[in-house]
Amino acid sequence: MKGWSAVGLAVRVALVAVGLLSGLMPVRPAWAGQGAGPPAPPNTPAALGYSAHGADTCLLCHRGNAHLMTLFRTAHARPGDPRGPFGPGGLQCEACHGPGGAHVKAFGRKPAGIVVFGRHSPTPVARQNAMCLGCHQATVGHAWLAGAHAANGVSCADCHRIHDTVDPVRVQATEATVCGTCHQAVRAAFLAPYHHPVPEGTMTCSSCHDPHGTTSRAMLVKATTNETCTSCHTQFRGPFLWEHQPVTENCGNCHTPHGSVQPALLKERPPILCQACHDTVGHPSVPYGPPGLPTGLPNPYLLAGGCINCHSQVHGSNSPSGRALMR
């Protein structure tokens, strides 16, 4: 709209400026990760602080750890993939754990600069994540630093189990369990009588949220709440001939997404929900109370669907007679 064209122009100019600026930077950003350090010719592994033989050095001690060895059944251990740590030219174990030369020299008695992953690791979260983002920044984490997980110090290893053959957070049936270890209130909400089928495993948290960060609120997969909801509920996307303003603005005006004790994930039950806005004189605002229950004089404004018994097209109507969303 006209009042905001200046904002649009400013953003466009900023985008071009940022694009140009980025190429002029003399140093790699911290998140560029692996291998960061001063140039030190010659570029032998030892000269740069790495082990002499890569994974063969590491496995001399660590191959007895069965859990660790399951890495070789994962996508990280694909020798034909030049993008992977075990591909041609890859840094193998040290691609993620950092240069291990000092660790080897210390006969493994202490980490000695090795990056250790996990929630209670001595390695700072920023350094842990930098190792992952060194490869994954563009593919899955391009908005990582714009997201809430980065802002709250979440490490990649808080959610991912890299050495497991099957990473639970990447399995549809177990993803929500991983998310729920931190998001306890949301996990509890999914136990409410009405919820999206996340506990049943036909949806996942990542159906709506991108845990690797987005520029939208709540790290939604789309830019707005409505675009996220209507990517599945496409029948409500409209546009309709007659629209309902709260619907076009935000599905969250009436619905709560994770779980509700009210049908259809509503915030309240009709007619109470509808009367939060429709409060004028007339039948919308009549206080329908217990006398309208089946034990008294059963009231259609109150029972079964309440307002929806007549105004069933609350998401919009394509009927020329749909003014009151009844057709």
């Binding site: 190429g23 790699r28 350090g37 790495y50 033989h53 063969d56 496995l59 075990f86 030219g89």
Partner: peptide, 20 residues
């Protein structure tokens, strides 16, 4: 932009790696 130096790992044969 120039990338930082990367070690030459052509000698890392990964003989002990049990690739699937």
């Amino acid at each position: 932009r120039a990338d930082p130096p990367k070690p030459d790992t052509s000698g890392w044969t990964c003989k002990l790696c049990p690739f699937h």
